[in-house]
Nucleic acid binder design. Structure first.
Lengths: 339, 339
DNA sequence: CGCGACGGTTGAAACGCGTCAACGCTGCCC
DNA sequence: GGGCAGCGTTGACGCGTTTCAACCGTCGCG
């Protein structure tokens, strides 16, 4: 077991009394090697603590077995769930997933992509900082590396992508309020420069013609921003207050909920609240939060499968842009008053 | 830009009219190359879209520039914060961080470690599934790969580690209750096979001699388990009910809080609740949750720095086992009654 | 003015390690 | 004896790095 730092296939061959190629065969095509020889080689490998040098292997193979998942923010539960789904599929295919965190920084994303390109990764699954126009990413694609966009830039036909239909999500929210009989509702979210937010708003309003809809723009999608919006809504005199509020994500909804609870405004009787994402904490809130759920793990799995498909048959592969449907998870925060 | 798949340093050299070595010098020791030549080479690189082959480079160098962070669960905020801290330090050192998720599975951890070893990573920062006795991890260390344990196995002297003093965290909790004048308190947590949980309990009880302390064991550290414990506590007749509860983590505390709120038991007036971890949602709970905060990012940064130090001077390096101190973050859930 | 020395480059070749295709040896069967 | 498996070996190859000898032009000294 000692002297491991420099153990190469050559020493294994020497110790086992065979040639280099045989050792290689034992490792890669064991059926070609006679039983006794194979045993001897495996024995030598064990004794020397030999570990294959992946650099050399890759150098010859021209590509690696790893698939990279580049996310905007590892601490966002949305992405961690996407990661889990993708890992599942990648694992099942015998590849290995590594996660890179761009942390919303274009510079870090670029650094990661550069390295990944140098490492000749098998493919990249990415939620790009800038929607996928970055030159580094374009280079990667030009080079023939399969790339799948996750939840961004679904309109680009030169690559695969997966996303969730946010307009539909908004529609589902509006529909839900309609069915509950609300005739004065509100949308809380922002900034509208985030396509997801704008889409959700658009879908929401599109099914609410004839209903009074107010909009409260927020500077970000956080609990604090939700609280502030809640402040503004609670300050309205009761007759002028919307009876149902759709928030662009669950954090906003949780903030809103807290503010309402603190102000003594009953949820859902006086104000119904509907979130988006269905994060784990939604169900666990003081008043269990209704939410529009995105199939996060599914999204990741589908993305990984598109990627794997492309790596397996790059020639016949046709790029696809999958769009998933969100679904309503109704809980107490939008229960019909009086229930 | 075309024909990129096979572009090698050789073609660059040819196109620039220089030799291989010169191109290599341009890439690695540009000061050794005359200005005009360098420009010519850079130009050729750009024109051909050349990207260095990291496998070949590593094959020669014997080791890579990447540092792996292997965590138990990417969707746990504790780890994502640790990751962020570690990435900061790794980035600053010019290395690259990749994250591997073992998902609590020893098999996946093993697979990842095997691959990392084959890739000759510069170092590994890991929270091992089994406390660090896994043979794959031991192999890695034998081989001379720097390994730093995170929040596990601090007693092992053959490697560096970082951890947070959970006994102290428990003491801080107990001390807090003492100062608030509680004379009947409870600990909620489990299973005690998790060292962190056992340590917190031990510390908690150690400073509460003379105080009545009940223990409610939970099967896991989740919101649901917290709710169940809350159920049991709320069922106690008021005089027999503890006036302050210390939970082994914030999820339990949030579940407990919800149950209390739902049962109409006032927090903190009738029951004070103290959590552990100070996750983002703690401050955002219906009643802002007091918690014992662990310096998560700091932990990650320190771990990465130990690792980097070891990679830089493997000979003079002495293993260290850093222990960090948690701190109390007092919010409303443990405010003095009547305030 | 001529020659050697010197600072500063350049280019050929060896090297790191595993993979794979082509080839060679043994022994057996018909 | 010819042919065929079955097994193992040989050697070229992938690509960037590094070493070292050779080379260039310039400068100083005699």
């Amino acid at each position: 077991m000692e002297n491991m730092e420099t153990t190469s296939i050559k020493e294994v061959a020497h110790r086992a009394g065979v040639s280099l190629g045989t050792v290689s065969n034992v490792l890669n095509r064991p059926h070609l090697v006679a039983d006794t020889t194979r045993q001897r080689v495996l024995e030598a490998i064990r004794e020397l603590g030999y570990v294959r040098n992946d650099s050399a292997r890759q150098l010859r193979a021209g590509r690696s077995r790893t698939i990279a998942i580049v996310v905007l923010d590892v601490s966002n539960p949305f992405f961690t769930d996407v990661i889990r789904g993708a890992e599942e599929a990648i694992d099942a295919a015998g590849a290995v997933a590594v996660v890179c965190n761009s942390g919303q920084s274009a510079a870090r994303e670029r650094r990661h992509l550069e390295l990944l390109e140098e490492q000749r990764v098998q493919g990249v699954l990415i939620t790009p900082v800038d929607g996928g126009r970055d030159s580094q990413l374009v280079n990667l694609i030009k080079r023939g590396v399969p790339v799948v966009l996750v939840d961004r830039g679904i309109w680009q036909s030169d690559r695969c992508s997966v996303a969730v239909d946010d307009v539909l999500g908004g529609r589902i929210a509006g529909q839900h309020f309609r069915e509950l009989g609300h005739d004065h509702v509100a949308f809380v979210g922002g900034p509208l420069t985030i396509p997801q937010v704008a889409d959700r708003q658009r879908g929401f309003e599109s099914v609410l013609s004839g209903v009074r809809v107010r909009t409260f723009l927020t500077p970000e999608l956080t609990v604090a921003a939700g609280r502030q919006a809640g402040h503004a809504i609670a300050d309205l005199p009761a007759p002028d207050r919307p009876t149902a509020v759709f928030c662009a994500n669950d954090l906003l909804a949780l903030g809103l909920l807290q503010e309402m609870t603190q102000r003594g405004i009953n949820v859902p009787d006086e104000v119904a609240i509907l979130g988006y994402d269905d994060i784990d904490f939604a169900a666990a809130a003081a008043v269990p939060l209704s939410s529009v759920r995105q199939p996060r793990e599914h999204l990741g799995r589908a993305a990984a499968e598109l990627l794997l498909e492309e790596t397996r048959s790059p020639d016949t592969h046709a790029h696809r842009n999958l769009v998933f449907h969100p679904e309503l998870v109704a809980r107490k925060s939008t229960a019909r008053p009086g229930r």
